[in-house]
Computed example of a mutant assay.
Amino acid sequence: MTSDVSRGVHPDDPAEGSREQGEAAEAAVARRAEEQREEEDRDEEDREEEDTAPEHTEDVLDLLYRQHEEIRRLFADVEQAGADERSSLFHELVRLLSVHETAEQELVHPAIRDLGGADVVDARVGEEHRATELLSTLTDMGTEAEGFDTLLAQLREDVLAHAEHEEQAEFPILRQGTARERLVSLAGAVRAAERIAPTRPHPGVESPAANLLLGPPLAIMDRARDAIRAVLGR
């Protein structure tokens, strides 16, 4: 093996140390440049995924249909779950039903009334009130209480019938009378309402604003109003 001395390079030669430092610096710069390119590529992929995400193209009726399917699934999950999982699944069902109906009352029902569907909306509001009373009773009872299964089956029947009525009598009015762009805008507003809607229903309170007043603090009402108005451009 040829030594550094035989090659004319002394191990302690300052020039050799400078050369090695320079190569190390160049390698570090190259690594940083490569990392920056990879980060830019990831950012571009994220932007592309965001532009094509369902929430940017999904209209309000598609969203509500999807929520109905999730509600059906959750009912089945609660009915089949063991004791350890049942409480958490029921809590999830309570929240989804609460925010779903609040979003409809806040945004969808008024739009259908404007299209001449007041009678249809009034029928749906009555159904929602009955379901909300039963849901509150079940929430107070708890999943381990005697009679819970019987009342849960009744709630399931009422809620799924209500969803079917919405899909058959209410949603077509909104689909036929509202521009696609408006429906997409309403979907964004529904998502905003869902973020601030109560996680526990309050029977007998038909106004979504009053419902929020009984649940979260007033500050959330302000944020909810701002979020909905921002999405709808009011």
Rank of each mutant, 00 (worst) to 15 (best):
L152A: 03
G117M: 12
I196R: 14
G188E: 02
R195H: 07
R195D: 11
E127K: 10
D149T: 10
P172F: 05
Q154T: 11
R191C: 06
D114S: 14
E194I: 00
E157N: 03
V159E: 01
E127Q: 14
A123T: 14
H129S: 14
I173Y: 02
V99R: 01
R156Y: 01
E181T: 11
M141T: 05
L115T: 07
A189V: 04
S185G: 14
E101G: 04
V108R: 10
V184S: 10
G188I: 02
G188N: 06
T178E: 03
A169G: 09
R191H: 06
G177T: 04
V190K: 10
P172E: 01
A192T: 01
L186N: 05
L107I: 13
L186C: 10
E133T: 06
L138A: 04
L152F: 00
L135M: 03
H129A: 15
A163K: 01
V108H: 08
A111L: 11
A118D: 15
E101M: 08
H162Y: 05
R182D: 12
A193T: 12
H100L: 07
T143M: 07
L134W: 05
E101H: 09
V184P: 06
Q105P: 04
T139W: 00
E127M: 09
M141G: 09
L138C: 03
A179K: 13
A111R: 15
R156D: 00
A161I: 06
A153W: 01
E181G: 09
G116E: 09
Q154K: 09
R195V: 01
Q154G: 05
E127W: 04
S98H: 04
A111K: 15
A103D: 08
